[in-house]
Structure formats: C-alpha cells, structure tokens
C-alpha cells in the first residue's frame, strides 16, 4: 500500500504522467547505482522546503538596522549572509539597494536563476515567458502589472542574472518604522520586494 508510507497528497492520485514515470525510474536507478540514497533525497527536499523568503527578509532587516552589516552586505552579500548563519553553499550573491533615486529589479532572461539558497524556490511568474521576455525591455510596464508604479524621476536598473551571480534587492525601509526591531522589520520584507517587483510593506496603520 504505497500511501501507508507518505502523507496523502492530491497529486499522487492523478494518472501517472510520462515525466513522473521518468522521475521515479531515474531516482530508483540512481539509488540502485549507489549515486544517492532515498534518505539523501528526502533530506535535500527538507532542506529546500526550509528555505523561504523569511531568510532573505532577516538579511534585509539587519541591513536596515546595522550600518556595518549593510556595508558588508553590499561588499559581499554571500559572505555577509553566511555570517548570519545561512547555508548558501557555493552561491555568489550581489545585493543591490533601492534608494529614492534608483529602483532595482531582477530577472533571468536565459533560464530562471534565482537566489534559491536564500529565498527558496522562485515563484512561477519569475519563470514565465512573459516576465523573462519583457522585463529587460519594458520594466516599468511589467512593474505596473505588479501594482508598482514608479515615479518618473526614479531610475530603473534591471539586472539580468546571466551567469554566475545571483541577486537580492534591498528594498527601501518603509517610512514610519523608526526604532523598530530587526525582527519586526523583517515582517515587512516580502519575497517580491527582494526581487524588485514590489516595495516593502508599509507598517500597519494603528
């Protein structure tokens, strides 16, 4: 009874697809050949599931509250994030900072490069033909579809993640958050604000 050993999932009950058939076969061959083990695959999935935008949000919130850390992050974002305890593997990371004059947005036109070790898996739209095609040519129009309407006097910097670097945007710290702790600030930092398709959230109105 296959369902006895793992939690019921709706996708388990659909008709087996050719790609799923290949996935099971490849996985079992790799285990049979001693390339990997079932436990190693399970551990890798757990490690990926544990990565979420909350990791990046903690990094951004610290940059907002710690001048030395902000400088270290802009100098070498991977090293600074590792120093906070995040496992980035061999990732090379560049942090780009939004200001009153400049807004940064990240895209990968060649595939779907994304700082997955810090933010988790990318959203589906980041991998879409529309986002990858249009962001380098009409970023303002793309951003407006996300509800982000930038003032005319703000310069847009698009970063095409073409090779060995990955990118994270440091959004602008929202107004009205003076004296906030890094923990409270992190709750305002969304995934999209670290890709550049949104601003950080405004503090709730009390």
């Amino acid at each position: 009874m296959p369902h006895d050993h793992h939690p019921h999932r709706p996708d388990d009950d659909h008709a087996l697809t050719y790609a799923q058939q290949m996935e099971i076969a490849v996985r079992e061959l790799l285990i049979a050949k001693g390339v990997t083990t079932a436990a190693e695959i399970t551990a890798q999935i757990a490690a990926m599931d544990a990565r979420s935008p909350a990791n990046g949000a903690a990094v951004v919130a610290r940059a907002w509250t710690d001048r030395d850390f902000r400088a270290a992050l802009l100098e070498d974002a991977a090293e600074a994030s590792r120093a906070m305890g995040f496992d980035l593997g061999p990732l090379r990371l560049i942090a780009v900072e939004n200001t009153a004059e400049v807004h940064n947005v990240i895209v990968c036109t060649l595939c779907s490069c994304y700082p997955r070790n810090l933010l988790g898996l990318p959203p589906d739209w980041y991998k879409s033909r529309a986002y990858r095609s249009r962001t380098v040519k009409e970023p303002r129009k793309v951003l407006s579809e996300f509800g982000l309407h930038l003032p005319e006097d703000v310069q847009v910097r698009v970063h095409d993640s073409t090779a060995d670097m990955r990118y994270i945007v440091i959004p602008q710290r929202p107004a009205g958050t003076d004296g906030w702790s890094a923990k409270d600030l992190a709750a305002l930092v969304t995934r999209d604000s670290m890709i550049g398709t949104a601003q950080a959230k405004a503090p709730p109105v009390l």
Binding site: P2, H3, H5
Partner: peptide
C-alpha cells in the same frame, strides 16, 4: 520505466516507497 508503469495507474501507486 516499464516496471514503474506496471505498478499502478497513479503516481502514488507507481512509487515503491
């Protein structure tokens, strides 16, 4: 792949573990 498909009609059925 043939062995996998013979286990059953769904992904859950076709997984051995």
């Amino acid at each position: 792949m043939t062995e996998v498909a013979a286990r059953g009609p769904t992904y859950g059925d076709a997984c051995r573990d």
